[in-house]
Simulated assay, not measured.
Amino acid sequence: MDFAQLNAWYSQSQRRTAVSLLMKRVGVTRTRAECFVRLWIYLLVKQLQESQPRIKPPLAKLELLETEVQCTHREAAELFYCDSERGSDRAAGMMLDKLEALGLIKKHFDGNTTAIEIQPIPEILDPAKPQKPVQLQLDNFNPRCDAITVANLLATNYNWMNRNTNAVTYKIAKILRLLASQYSKGMRVLRRCDNLNPVGFYLLYPTATSSEVNFFSVPSKSLHLSSISDIDPFNMALPGDQNCQSVFVRSWMIEPQYLSEYRIDFLEDAQKVLVEMQTDFPNLCDLYTLMIHPGYEKQALALGFHKTNSDRQLSIYWMYLPLDRFLALNIKEALLKL
């Protein structure tokens, strides 16, 4: 079977798909996968032609052989190397040995000829159906149900910063529940519709006037979730506080696989929540965030945030944006280039 016949029976795009699936197996290189797929096509056609002499290409799909089929090393060499420099019979025999060692085929030699049996390959015989995309919904943070899941989500930010896997998830969960008991309006989640688990979270923290000086100090001194100290450097303003002017975006993140699709919705939701917060804090005018994970830097800059105070010890820094400008922003237009 030459290369043209191979393409006629099973197209190059079909073979490419099968090769990609096979390469997920340990030890299966692209060359080995391609040789195996060619061998499967050849043996299947050879068997079908014995029972159906008038059969014509193409094959609808790859199927298991009914019985083992004879195949010499010469046949295998012509098949494996039909589109490249001629490989030897010995090289083809070594490839068959490798395919057998990988569990893709079984071969039997009776002293004269080699018979080959294709082993069941579930990923090709019964390919998984594409999963329906997970739908997400915006919702309020539920301290009873969401604290642990969100704490694990947030811990990834601090694990990256500290270069370890020991972020105190327990502490984060306790803090989230405490903050929710004080003022939960600024705590929102992006929740899976199927299992209700949060995959995104933000925390808009109305900051008491006494704590605003932190926005102009060394950023590392304002870390709380990842710090050893149990003392929060920030105090929360209570609804009705006429002196509260600042909102601290203490958290804003979405699991990477959902970020591109739901980023705009989550930011637009934050705009709506900030408008609602203005009824509780009528003099809000400043928006601050602490840039911890570099993955969100481009987003912050696109929204209009600019860097203020940096830290000499850690690669974190304060960013600022006037609240009115954020509320007037067309999020979709602002993020077009992301």
Score class of each variant (00 low, 15 high):
1 M>S: 05
211 S>M: 07
296 Y>D: 04
320 Y>M: 05
268 E>I: 09
39 L>D: 07
156 T>P: 00
237 A>N: 09
171 K>A: 05
208 A>K: 10
237 A>R: 13
299 Q>I: 06
28 V>G: 08
302 A>N: 14
60 A>V: 08
91 A>K: 14
27 G>H: 02
184 S>E: 15
143 P>W: 14
204 L>Y: 05
42 Y>E: 09
156 T>L: 04
293 H>P: 01
174 K>Q: 12
145 C>P: 00
273 V>T: 12
46 K>E: 15
228 I>L: 14
259 L>E: 12
45 V>L: 09
62 L>R: 12
314 L>K: 11
289 T>E: 01
150 V>E: 02
78 E>A: 10
65 L>N: 05
262 Y>V: 11
197 N>T: 15
12 Q>R: 13
40 W>F: 06
199 V>H: 08
273 V>Y: 03
175 I>E: 14
320 Y>P: 02
18 A>P: 00
202 Y>N: 08
202 Y>F: 15
17 T>A: 09
176 L>F: 12
52 Q>C: 06
327 L>P: 09
192 R>H: 03
277 M>R: 07
17 T>V: 10
271 Q>V: 10
61 K>L: 10
322 P>Y: 06
81 Y>N: 11
187 M>I: 02
323 L>W: 04
286 D>E: 15
96 L>W: 07
21 L>R: 02
236 M>P: 13
138 L>H: 10
149 T>A: 15
56 K>T: 14
35 C>R: 11
170 Y>P: 02
